[in-house]
Nucleic acid binder design. Structure first.
Lengths: 155, 155
DNA sequence: GATGAAATAGCATTTGC
DNA sequence: GCAAATGCTATTTCATC
């Protein structure tokens, strides 16, 4: 599953995770390769899927979503059909920013954003009616450590 | 807190969250503005802090981190001094990809990556010795819904 | 098999409107 | 916000180690 990465790849990954808003020439200087070589490396990293995408990360509050909550979900039933219905509901709700199946005390962990309490409640209600048996809501108060790059450096 | 955003800003934010790996000219065509105008808009979005940064998002497993876990933490003590020590420990551990103070059943929600079980355990032990009273670990099994853009479109 | 250097086309960015 | 202009950059090609 893991892709083979040499030293230069690791530096590129580190830098691109930190700040992808740079010219290829800057990157080239950074890693000590020619622009052409750097371009090839980066293309390969994208094609191999190690780099999934380049995206803008927003400040949720400034973008109009002052409420951010972790929602942990226990499903009422675990048959594939029930799960499928729940999955569809999750994917259809734009306020759900990410969702993962997990192993542990609960079944699914969600990250939900909302413009106000009413919108949040709407999401929670819909989850309840689409297969969630128990919902636990954790209101995000403050960032302790911001979204950080994967520590791809050699150990 | 929220920044004033008009229709064009919202389109730009939507597109940049989806794929920031495009030329300014492409973006301009997309929103129907001149390249210069588009550049100004994007610059303003970055300066205002709505756009925090442009980053590469990696596939954790392909980047060498097959283990990803949510770790919920209850602190042993809640005095500022104890919290500070815990915060420092969290910020110092590169395997902790993000961390948020939350309100609810627990105090802090972490996202942790590791190359193997030993590395994960090392993180958990360190958290325990730095103020965590109770740790609950949720192993991420499978992505139900991938990291998605904030739904900034007008309602 | 990947890198570097050179060349071209296209882009980012500025200025004046 | 637009249009035009300039200086750089992305990207290709080809030679090279």
């Amino acid at each position: 599953m893991a892709v083979k990465l040499d030293e230069v790849d690791l530096i590129l990954l580190r830098e691109l995770q930190e700040d992808a808003d740079r010219t290829n020439v800057d990157l080239a200087r950074l890693v000590g390769l020619s622009p052409a070589g750097t371009l090839n490396r980066v293309r390969r990293l994208k094609e191999s899927g190690v780099v999934r995408r380049i995206t803008a990360r927003l400040d949720p509050a400034k973008a109009g979503f002052p409420l951010q909550v972790y929602v942990s979900v226990t499903l009422a039933r675990h048959e594939p059909r029930a799960s499928k219905g729940f999955e569809d509901a999750v994917r259809a709700m734009p306020q759900i920013i990410s969702a993962d199946w997990v192993a542990g005390e609960i079944d699914v962990m969600l990250l939900v954003v909302a413009r106000d309490v009413a919108e949040l409640q709407q999401v929670l209600v819909r989850l309840s009616t689409r297969g969630a048996q128990r919902l636990t809501t954790l209101l995000r108060l403050e960032e302790l450590k911001p979204a950080s790059p994967l520590p791809v450096a050699p150990r």
